[in-house]
Structure formats: C-alpha cells, structure tokens
C-alpha cells in the first residue's frame, strides 16, 4: 500500500485515490486541425518511463481534488506532489 500525500489533506492510504495517468498532457489548441494520427497520439499515446513519471491522481475518497505527483515507476517512491496549475518541481 502506498502512502500518498494529498497536497490538501496530507498523507493518506492509496485506497483513497484514483489514478489519472500521465500529467501535463496539453489539450490541442485546435483539435479540428489535427490529422487522425495526431489526434490518436494525443488521446492514446503516453510515456512509459522506468523512473520518474509525472502523473495525475485524484483524492477520490477525500477532498476529491485532482493533483499531480512525481512517482518513480521502478520503486514507487513519490518524489513530489503539487497542486493543479503549479509547475512540476525542478528537482523531481
């Protein structure tokens, strides 16, 4: 079980959270201008690193807010959590 620090509520059980995939995937400015392949890349293609990964989590059973976390996919260690709209911390 992971202990995840919600940026609002503090450390909580992993069971209280919902996973939201890769963070900082920008919505295209003009989706209609994209080719099918570009649109598919936006929708379905995600990074799959071994190591640090910025991802979205929702504190579903708590304050119900989405936030971002930088997790090491190899060790599950969470290096940073930050609120939506805040930049990814530089050292994580």
């Amino acid at each position: 079980m992971l202990l995840i620090a919600c940026p609002w509520c503090g450390p909580r059980d992993e069971a209280e959270f919902h996973y939201g995939g890769q963070a900082h995937v920008a919505h295209p400015d003009d989706p209609a201008a994209l080719s099918d392949e570009e649109w598919a890349r936006y929708l379905f293609f995600r990074d799959n690193p071994k190591g640090l990964f910025a991802e979205r989590w929702s504190h579903a059973a708590g304050c119900r807010r989405w936030f971002n976390a930088v997790r090491d996919t190899a060790t599950n260690e969470i290096h940073a959590v930050y609120r939506v709209g805040e930049p990814r911390p530089v050292n994580s």
Partner: peptide
C-alpha cells in the same frame, strides 16, 4: 474533520 474511508466506506 476528514473525508476518508471507514471499513472501506466513504
């Protein structure tokens, strides 16, 4: 106060 799980119930 806290919103949390008690016996897996919100």
């Amino acid at each position: 106060c806290a919103q949390t799980l008690l016996a897996r119930t919100g």
